[in-house]
Design a protein around this nucleic acid. Structure first.
Lengths: 111, 111
DNA sequence: TCTATAGGCAGCCTAATAACTGCATATAAA
DNA sequence: TTTATATGCAGTTATTAGGCTGCCTATAGA
């Protein structure tokens, strides 16, 4: 799971996933088209995405086609995000409680 | 959005969120109880979580209570994860396609 | 066969992270 | 009022991350 979160932490990599969502099968060269990035940098990003299972690849001759694999994202969503959804109601209750609490507890103007 | 992904990229911070999910209102001292981490390190993590909107705080006297805010996680899920869910069917089709493609395209044994 | 193209791998450099120490401030309790 | 506790802020250091250059291999096409 850590690999997935780490992979998603970088905006460049999220953009790559977006592009692969729109256009499955892009090659490395196509992925960097229109960007300032060097091929080698993009290659490292792809490695990280592959290690996280977010991208699969397929060689066709000398070209390497890249495909998005949405499954890990969905697993994170199902196994991790969902438990926080259940907390929503409780969180709102907490908030209400704080608001109802005497506002004199809000000292320490510093920070 | 970047702040949220960055905040979630660190396992220590995800553990903090887990603890705040289970026990809302923990203080900084309570948060580091049982860990090897120094208070100052935890404080920085909390700052990052606060900046991402994942944690809200409330002063009570000299104590600072911490609360999980699950909303940003849900927004990410709704606005970002969901679009990848729609890709699932298509991704499976892509996979099928690759499998059906002549396997002789799988050269380059290296790497 | 020769040349151009697609990509991998290694190494280097810089910036961002995450941990720590030391010191300061605010509140609580004796 | 004095002391202990809860936290903040600044600065240092080590590790990680992301980008680049240089060079190598493999395939495609003339």
């Amino acid at each position: 799971m850590d690999l997935i979160f780490k992979a998603l932490a970088d905006a460049t990599r999220r953009e790559m996933l977006d592009r692969l969502l729109e256009q499955p099968g892009l090659t490395l060269g196509e992925l960097i088209a229109g960007t300032e990035m060097r091929r080698q940098s993009a290659s490292k990003h792809v490695q990280i995405l592959e290690a996280a299972g977010l991208v699969t690849t397929e060689w066709q001759g000398r070209e390497k086609k890249h495909f998005l694999n949405p499954v890990p994202i969905q697993e994170i969503s199902r196994r991790w995000v969902d438990k926080y959804s259940e907390a929503r109601t409780e969180a709102i209750l907490n908030l209400k409680q704080s608001l109802e609490t005497d506002s004199s507890t809000q000292k320490r103007t510093k920070s």
